[in-house]
Design a protein around this nucleic acid. Structure first.
Lengths: 155, 155
DNA sequence: AATGTTAATGAAAACCATTTTCAATAAGGA
DNA sequence: TCCTTATTGAAAATGGTTTTCATTAACATT
């Protein structure tokens, strides 16, 4: 499959160059899909979206590409408790800010929030520093999620 | 299978009474196993431990019981990224304190920590209050985990 | 104790998201 | 153009977890 080139080069292009990976059409398409959604898509949902435009891209490639993107740090992988992984671009053209998630345990709705993030970050920074020292543990990342009932799912 | 009765009644007994569930031998055994370990066991590990004493208890029952215990709030279910759920008693005879986990992404080792928990709890309380109000979201619980490399897995 | 009703159980089969296999193709360098 | 390696798609395999279904055990009522 040929490489896809149009418009201004997306931010992930240099990351592929550096890493020596090929920015093929399926990969481009998957990144575009992730780039154009506000949702937290599963592998299959990404596959379906890509498939509409490039019907010859297989689900296997979607899984493999997502694994690659996660390893490259371009994409975050989440488990919201609905038995399938969900993916999110780690940064965006919209310069999406660092955020965490509220997960509705009834309908699965996900709310991104950035409120209190600064406070959280400060706490995390201190906690990470303390834990690193006490347990000699080199912390690379963290996971914070709140679970509960969204507006519509409360009796 | 007959009910198992020995020694002082464990703390979970009244919970079963209240809820109207039967505290059968397999359930008792599973709770005992969880009660006597410091580890974060998977369903299969629990099954193997129970199986040593009661070889006629099946894996299916272990899964069903764990689901029940999680629903009852007696057990917490965690995903530490090793493709299987892991379980932990929500309270203990050792009056285990509220804690979070450090997860080694290399060897899978889990460290329970209670340090900074008070600070965390205070932040969580405030964050939860703020989020509840802003998004009208009724928060029931949260998940906080730190990932990184444990002492032995650092180059 | 005997009976009836429902909960709980075990073995086997089904499920299903994700991985692996493998042969074919495309890309980039020599 | 040739060579070597990365990438891909289809199909098959994987493996933790759930479901099915027939059996058994527990409790309440006779």
């Amino acid at each position: 499959m040929p490489r896809c080139r149009r418009g201004r080069p997306p931010w992930w292009e240099p990351r592929f160059q550096e890493a020596g990976f090929r920015l093929t059409m399926p990969r481009q398409a998957i990144l575009e899909v992730l780039s154009n959604t506000e949702e937290h898509l599963s592998a299959e949902e990404i596959y379906l979206a890509v498939h509409k435009i490039y019907p010859n891209v297989g689900l296997t490639t979607v899984y493999r590409t997502l694994e690659l993107l996660v390893n490259m740090g371009l994409v975050f992988k989440f488990d919201f408790g609905d038995k399938r992984a969900r993916y999110e671009l780690s940064q965006g053209p919209t310069s999406k800010k660092h955020h965490h998630h509220l997960v509705c345990i009834n309908c699965g709705r996900i709310i991104d929030y950035t409120d209190f993030i600064d406070e959280e970050k400060e706490l995390l920074r201190r906690t990470e520093a303390g834990l690193s020292e006490k347990y000699n543990f080199k912390i690379t990342h963290h996971l914070i999620q709140f679970y509960g009932l969204c507006e519509e799912c409360q009796g």
